[in-house]
């Protein structure tokens, strides 16, 4: 082996060692703690899909995936429902869903009655709690979470809503820990939920 070959081998060896060390550090780093969002959230009481009064605080001790929408929405809302349900089912497959609760709040109480939600939500196989109520009560919850919804006359003759469509991850004390867009990454939410269990 000449000097040049020796130098190259030593250089490659050092790179390999440095790479392995970096990999070890990355693997041993604990999952980052999600910050508490102090500007959004809080307890509220609405009516659940069984027609019973329901307070968010009754879920203390569980991680909540909270989201808003309406069942007459054809495009975004069913997609969000499907994705949240997939998060729940993935956690269930991993034996991690016992203390996880998806909660859907409608901002269309006129059509999304408790009875309709009771018929609509079980299809998603994610044990989703559906919440409805009178418009002022729902409006107050929406304001707490920074959700905007505006009722409009749709061209189909049915009411439509302009609305924000964020998904909220709440910890076991009901505090907002992360907010996701409607097209969130399912694996990311699954991983975030696990940090709060």
């Amino acid at each position: 082996m000449n000097n040049k070959d020796g130098f190259t081998s030593a250089f490659l060896f050092r790179i390999l060692v440095a790479g392995a060390a970096l990999l070890l550090v990355a693997c041993s780093e604990p999952a980052k703690e999600l910050p508490v969002n102090t500007r959004l959230g809080g307890d509220f009481t609405l009516t659940d899909h069984n027609g019973e009064r329901f307070s968010l605080s009754s879920l203390n001790g569980e991680v909540v995936i909270l989201f808003f929408g309406y069942t007459h929405c054809p495009d975004i809302c069913p997609a969000v429902l499907a994705r949240v349900s997939q998060v729940y089912r993935n956690l269930k497959e991993q034996g991690e869903a016992d203390r996880v609760q998806p909660v859907f709040v409608t901002f269309d109480p006129e059509r999304d009655t408790a009875e309709h939600l009771r018929e609509y939500l079980p299809w998603f196989k994610a044990d989703i709690i559906g919440l409805t109520g009178d418009v002022p009560a729902i409006q107050k919850v929406a304001e707490q979470y920074g959700v905007v919804f505006i009722k409009e006359d749709g061209d189909s003759g049915e009411a439509d809503f302009t609305h924000s469509d964020y998904i909220y991850l709440l910890d076991q004390q009901g505090r907002v820990r992360k907010v996701y867009p409607a097209d969130f990454n399912i694996d990311e939410v699954v991983a975030d939920v696990k940090t709060l269990l």
Binding site: D75, G154, P181
Partner: peptide, 20 residues
């Protein structure tokens, strides 16, 4: 019973709305 072509648009504040 009814079929329409719609567009979902998002404004600068993240609000979605549908139009025919």
């Amino acid at each position: 019973g009814m079929a329409m072509l719609h567009d979902t648009s998002t404004d600068g504040e993240g609000r979605r709305s549908m139009s025919h």
